[in-house]
């Protein structure tokens, strides 16, 4: 405390974890793995009306090697599952996964032969955004939850 008051506002003291978390949470590069209906709401969230850019998550990267957050948007069928797994494996650490919509959380209304019953059976999920499809407000809330999680976690260098 004493040091801080002596230095005034010229220097900010913090922990490495905190500053890295702060930097990481406001520069999310999404990989939108868009398969189905939820993609329409993802579009709506990304466009000017709801403006995902306010959260530093405006720029989608379509190469998994350049992305931090895997947004799994829409139903994952058993045919699609190996592809999802492969995309996830190609992403560099640190990486996060967001399950966008009911189908990715639990299979949603599709309890049948074709659909994966929740993507957490294939890849680890950090944030679940429920809804069929979730409203843009819910999506933004999910992103804020993810940011909180990133801020509070131990930062790997």
């Amino acid at each position: 405390m004493a040091i801080e008051s002596a230095l005034g506002e010229s220097v900010v003291l913090t922990r490495t974890d905190k500053v890295l978390g702060w930097a990481r949470k406001y520069s999310l590069f999404l990989y939108p793995f868009v398969t189905a209906c939820c993609g329409m709401e993802y579009m709506a969230t990304a466009a000017s009306h709801y403006d995902i850019d306010r959260f530093g998550a405006g720029l989608p990267r379509f190469s998994p090697r350049q992305a931090d957050v895997l947004f799994v948007v829409g139903t994952i069928s058993h045919k699609q599952a190996p592809i999802l797994k492969r995309v996830w494996e190609q992403m560099c650490e640190p990486k996060w996964v967001v399950a966008f919509g009911g189908c990715t959380c639990s299979g949603g209304p599709y309890d049948n032969y074709a659909t994966v019953q929740g993507i957490d059976t294939i890849v680890p999920v950090d944030v679940y955004i429920p809804g069929c499809p979730p409203r843009p407000e819910t999506v933004l809330d999910g992103i804020m939850k993810l940011q909180e999680k990133i801020q509070n976690q131990k930062q790997e260098l």
């Binding site: 398969t35 209906c37 069928s77 032969y113 074709a114």
Partner: peptide, 27 residues
């Protein structure tokens, strides 16, 4: 890659329940 078994699922639902699956055809 997005085969979700629409037809099979509807055959196992009532006429009313099938409505929500039709939503998700051309979404």
């Amino acid at each position: 890659y997005l085969h979700r078994g629409f037809e099979k699922t509807c055959e196992n639902r009532t006429y009313h329940q099938a409505i929500i699956y039709t939503d998700r055809l051309n979404y």
